[in-house]
């Protein structure tokens, strides 16, 4: 029961970062391997503002959103669009965007190290609380609830608004979306920026209960990627289910076996997915 509760609470922020990545990959077709660094940037912002100006991380989350949105929009517009334009096919774009986002990720890590080389450790809302009979902390619960709110609004936006539906259309087929008059480059930029914003907000949230450092981003990138593949590219519902599975499995392994094996357990899930359901949990095999 403890495992289920803390796994679920962890899954909230995992879902957020994976939703961000899924928007970037599913819509803008950019495999963003700097996704984890976006998350760590959000965490660093929350840490830095709290330590230096006593700004509540929950407030930082709200500020991080628009800033990350603009930042990611600029990255897409000036770094990635040239790659999209020059690539002749999807494979070429994949290789280019992987390398470019590697570059970005190292660059961002470099900047973050020069701001804070140690751990982003701070205490905020760390009182213990009891949920369904198992103990957890208030910050975990707060982060989870905020993640639900952010993820829920994203879901509603994607399904209920004109722009949201246009974004989803691009994710189904770039060509068809273009044919029905959707401004594909604009929607891709929007999705990329939004994806970055959601991921960074997830980072601010996770920093309240999880101690990060500047170089840990790649682990989160890995986890986000595994969740996206497990849930299926472009599938919001699948992403959430996959995030819950990963959150619970990781917590279980950390509690029952060894906390050092969370990445290994994520890999184990990844391997199962690759072997048995490479098209994702709910995906259809399209050959």
């Amino acid at each position: 029961m403890d495992i289920l509760v803390s796994g679920l609470l962890l899954a909230g922020t995992y879902a957020l970062m994976a939703l961000g990545l899924n928007l970037q990959y599913g819509v803008a077709r950019i495999m963003n391997l700097a996704n984890g660094e976006m998350l760590v940037l959000g965490a660093l912002a929350a840490f830095w503002l709290y330590i230096n100006a006593q700004v509540s991380p929950l407030l930082t989350v709200v500020m991080v959103g628009p800033i990350a949105f603009i930042g990611n929009w600029l990255i897409y517009r000036f770094l990635l669009v040239p790659l999209v334009k020059r690539s002749k096919n999807q494979g070429q774009l994949e290789v280019d965007s992987i390398l470019a986002t590697f570059g970005m990720s190292f660059f961002i890590v470099g900047i973050m190290v020069s701001i804070e080389g140690g751990f982003f450790a701070y205490k905020y809302l760390s009182e213990t609380i009891s949920i369904l009979g198992s103990t957890s902390s208030l910050n975990r619960l707060a982060a989870f609830l905020l993640a639900v709110v952010i993820g829920g609004s994203l879901y509603l936006w994607l399904n209920r608004t004109r722009t949201g539906v246009a974004v989803r259309a691009v994710s189904v087929s770039t060509e068809a979306a273009g044919l029905v008059g959707i401004d594909v480059p604009k929607m891709s930029a929007l999705a990329f920026a939004l994806g970055g914003a959601v991921t960074s907000m997830g980072g601010s949230l996770i920093s309240t209960f999880y101690t990060l450092d500047a170089s840990v981003g790649v682990i989160f990138t890995m986890k986000a990627l595994i969740i996206v593949i497990m849930g299926g590219v472009g599938d919001v519902r699948g992403t959430i289910v996959a995030a819950i599975i990963l959150g619970i499995v990781e917590t279980a392994v950390a509690t029952l076996v060894d906390p050092g094996l969370t990445l290994a357990s994520a890999y184990f899930i990844f391997l199962l997915i690759l072997l048995f359901r490479p098209q994702g949990l709910f995906g259809r095999r399209t050959a």
Binding site: L79, L83, D96, L99, A100, F102, G103, M104, S105, F106, F107, I108, V109, G110, I111, V113, S114, S215
Partner: peptide, 15 residues
């Protein structure tokens, strides 16, 4: 202290 950033720049240079 700037080696990581340097790697990033080289990656971008290559691409």
């Amino acid at each position: 202290n700037q080696t990581t950033m340097f790697i990033g720049l080289i990656f971008l240079l290559i691409v």
